[in-house]
Nucleic acid binder design. Structure first.
Lengths: 330, 330
DNA sequence: TAATTCAAGACAACCGTTTGCGCGATAAAA
DNA sequence: TTTTATCGCGCAAACGGTTGTCTTGAATTA
């Protein structure tokens, strides 16, 4: 069964393709009467324009590319998922679809192929890295794109969560409880978020005129064996509290604590980023931060749409957070 | 800067577009000498064919649609992620990209729009439901598609994990330890996997000529409040062991056990599906099943490629599993 | 009434490929 | 030598829309 085309519609109504096209797009000169006649016919016969042909004529695909870093040691899944849902929500409302690009941050090949093939009208990067070759590449070509998470590339339009303030506030809360020896365990140093959180951590100390214990900052802590050593080290240093930069790290730390009979919050306080499902069922409940990732995705997608439509959204959109107090820091 | 087109290449070399097209595709009659001359020129000037134009001419998009159910209470994220990675791997190797479709299982609108717009060459459903309206719709239209997870629609080509055998084996292990009063806590009854697991559970009993305690089967257990009641109920019934159909349920059950001072494995044994990161850091370690989801994604995508290329893959591909023994059932 | 304006819509070129068909040249078969 | 196959390649028509320009007839103005 062949699909019905614009010519079929035109012939059936005894008008030209132009007229049908204009009736649909609403652009160009056409009488209301004719427009309605065309639209009625289209409705009745369920004509759907061929988007491919439309793409070719207009150089527009109605797809947006969303880049998800293909890193297996990142347990940021709920983040990506919620973010995607937010993007999808806005995209769908404008009849755009999502082309998912899964590649390691340093690898621009798939992205380049997709751009060369003109398969998308714009790009959203769901995570950015300190020296992000994808961001660099995108800013050189003339493609609309949005980064989620800040980047050092001048031209990039960004949507971000306020990780710096969040980490500042979390750290401050602990410091004000008299906990001075606070360890910070973080993941990949090359994430821009990691840097931002670190900055907030430092600022909390300096604002209270307290010294940061540099020896208690542990970044790039990914693998379980390494993390065990880290915890070991933390314990020998008579630490008061630990802030974990993600919830997967936190569960591991908690496990090691239990193995070593370190009680929380008795012997040690602990707090984490994201109040994700992974932590939800811990006893004691864990103090953590809550960000609205779906909102983040929505904001990113809205901004991208603006750029695609030729407008210029504000350069940086920063979204808030919430501290969720738990028993683990009482 | 305009993009270089096939006509530019043809003109530059003094040949026709036909010849250039043939040199690239390798189809049609062309001398080796000419082909190489064309390919060399293309390489040097970095000509990339316009995929949109190609799509229009060939009615082919080099996109595959992947459907992810937009259900917030499903904590199957690692499953979907690994699956996606597997799909991506195969797709990319054939220069296909992934169009991500996020919709609730009962909602076929986005899917219909995408099909009407001919934006994909085929579809993969990452989860199927008992009465899956998406599957039903797809099997009516003439679109290549693969379901992950079995379905009752005749024409569907399926890739599946052997949840029935897996649950059978897991249950058998417990039964053979003398644990007869086994509770089964499951999520959404409308997932086909849920049904399959239930079948395996039952079979384990019947094979050992033991009666299934129907009153210990708890399906559709999603929300935390409801789950608490369920656990309460299980405890009053003097149960020996609990099998949780997913790891998120399991962590909640474990939490409630701890609250009520039910010790694992002393007072109660427990086992779960998937050995995901959520469970990784529990003490005691949890007995669970391990499936290779990435492999599943790969298999699904390979089969879809077969269909798209006009071949007929086998109707059902079933992948294995592994039981990961833990301290929780010792 | 003639000249001017303008809205409605048709025509045809164009977007960048693929592909069926035809044509001349060369090689093989009769 | 003539007929037939085969080969290498170009022509032009698709694929299904959009859009700038032109035509037509009716309304407006002088």
């Amino acid at each position: 069964m062949k699909n019905i085309t614009i010519s079929d519609v035109a012939d059936a109504l005894g008008v030209s393709k132009t007229t049908v096209s204009r009736a649909i797009s609403g652009k160009g000169r056409i009488s209301n009467q004719t427009r309605e006649r065309v639209l009625a016919y289209i409705e009745e016969h369920d004509y759907k324009p061929n988007v491919i042909a439309k793409s070719l004529a207009q150089s527009k695909t109605y797809n947006i590319g969303v880049i998800m870093p293909a890193e297996y040691d990142i347990i940021d899944l709920p983040f990506f998922q919620s973010c995607l849902f937010g993007i999808q929500e806005i995209a769908a409302s404008k009849d755009y679809d999502i082309l998912l690009i899964i590649s390691p941050p340093g690898d621009t090949r798939q992205l380049e192929r997709i751009l060369a093939n003109r398969k998308v009208d714009g790009i959203i990067l769901m995570r950015t890295f300190v020296k992000d070759s994808q961001v660099k590449m995108l800013s050189q070509k003339n493609v609309p794109f949005i980064t989620i998470g800040s980047t050092y590339v001048e031209s990039a339009i960004q949507v971000d969560q306020d990780h710096k303030s969040a980490c500042f506030e979390l750290t401050s809360i602990l410091l004000k409880k008299g906990l001075k020896k606070i360890a910070l365990i973080g993941g990949n140093e090359n994430f821009v978020v990691t840097q931002n959180r670190l900055a907030g951590f430092r600022e909390a100390f300096s604002q209270l005129k307290l010294p940061v214990r540099e020896d208690l900052i542990y970044l790039n802590t990914e693998h379980s064996s390494q993390l065990d050593e880290t915890v070991e080290d933390i314990l020998t240093k008579n630490t008061d509290a630990v802030i974990c930069m993600d919830d997967a790290l936190c569960t591991q730390v908690l496990k090691t604590f239990r193995k070593k009979n370190v009680s929380v919050p008795g012997d040690m306080k602990i707090a984490s980023f994201y109040n994700s499902t992974v932590l939800e069922n811990y006893i004691p409940s864990i103090t953590s931060l809550s960000f609205d990732e779906k909102k983040l995705g929505r904001a990113a997608c809205k901004n991208l749409m603006e750029i695609i439509e030729g407008n210029t959204p504000q350069k940086i959109t920063v979204l808030g957070y919430q501290v969720i107090p738990g028993e683990s820091t009482e």
